[in-house]
Amino acid sequence: MKPYKVCKVEDLKSGERKLLTIEGRNIGLFNVKGKYTAIKNSCPHQGAPLCEGRVEGMTVVKKNRELEYIRDGEILRCPWHGWEFDLLNGNSIFNPLKCRTKAYKVTIEKDPVETYPVTIENEYIFVHI
């Protein structure tokens, strides 16, 4: 997998996203509470621009039948039909073993261009395809 420098760490704040095209692939890069994730910008249901959907959490029923809102900022909802996906791994919420969208490896690295002895102060986000 070849890494692509896409932006500086400080350019993508927690809760933000950046839509990218790398080698003809449409990808959404997300900062999920300081963890950077990248997924294919296409819903497996009908090809909607998945990464343009709302990022939220989900409500679950606890054993005592109370509702609890969990995973705030980790769930991406498709803008067309509301299908939900885990931003941390690309799996669908309703059927994670059979339905998912492609998740890409994301790393934080120092700027790799060093032609002279220098001190590197800026970090960049790389998406590996």
Results as ranks from 00 to 15, higher is better:
residue 20 L to Q: 05
residue 74 E to W: 01
residue 103 A to R: 08
residue 67 L to R: 11
residue 106 V to D: 08
residue 9 V to T: 14
residue 2 K to F: 00
residue 98 K to C: 08
residue 88 L to D: 04
residue 103 A to L: 04
residue 14 S to Q: 07
residue 110 K to E: 15
residue 128 H to Q: 04
residue 14 S to H: 00
residue 66 E to I: 02
residue 129 I to W: 07
residue 7 C to H: 03
residue 33 K to P: 00
residue 101 T to Q: 08
residue 89 N to G: 13
residue 40 K to T: 07
residue 57 G to D: 05
residue 89 N to S: 14
residue 28 G to N: 06
residue 113 V to I: 13
residue 92 S to L: 07
residue 62 K to P: 01
residue 94 F to Y: 10
residue 56 E to G: 02
residue 77 R to V: 09
residue 94 F to K: 13
residue 58 M to Y: 09
residue 116 Y to W: 13
residue 94 F to D: 15
residue 66 E to V: 01
residue 92 S to M: 08
residue 46 Q to N: 05
residue 63 K to L: 12
residue 116 Y to N: 15
residue 48 A to P: 03
residue 22 I to W: 11
residue 6 V to P: 02
residue 28 G to P: 06
residue 68 E to A: 03
residue 99 C to G: 02
residue 68 E to Y: 01
residue 81 H to A: 05
residue 45 H to C: 06
residue 104 Y to A: 06
residue 6 V to E: 01
residue 46 Q to H: 10
residue 82 G to K: 08
residue 82 G to A: 08
residue 51 C to Q: 04
residue 128 H to A: 03
residue 50 L to H: 02
residue 43 C to E: 04
residue 79 P to W: 10
residue 93 I to W: 10
residue 69 Y to V: 13
residue 125 I to R: 12
residue 12 L to Y: 10
residue 1 M to K: 06
residue 71 R to T: 00
residue 49 P to K: 04
residue 105 K to H: 14
residue 26 N to Y: 09
residue 103 A to M: 05
residue 65 R to W: 12
residue 77 R to I: 06
residue 66 E to R: 03
residue 45 H to A: 04
residue 81 H to V: 02
residue 12 L to H: 08
residue 101 T to H: 08
residue 96 P to A: 06
residue 35 K to L: 10
residue 98 K to F: 06
residue 22 I to H: 10
residue 110 K to R: 14
residue 116 Y to V: 15
residue 29 L to A: 11
residue 47 G to R: 07
residue 33 K to D: 13
residue 121 E to M: 13
residue 76 L to F: 01
residue 86 D to F: 04
residue 31 N to P: 08
residue 124 Y to T: 00
residue 113 V to M: 08
residue 10 E to V: 13
residue 96 P to C: 07
residue 15 G to I: 05
residue 39 I to F: 03
residue 124 Y to Q: 01
residue 1 M to E: 11
residue 124 Y to S: 01
residue 127 V to K: 11
residue 35 K to C: 05
residue 100 R to P: 01
residue 126 F to C: 11
residue 46 Q to A: 09
residue 109 E to M: 13
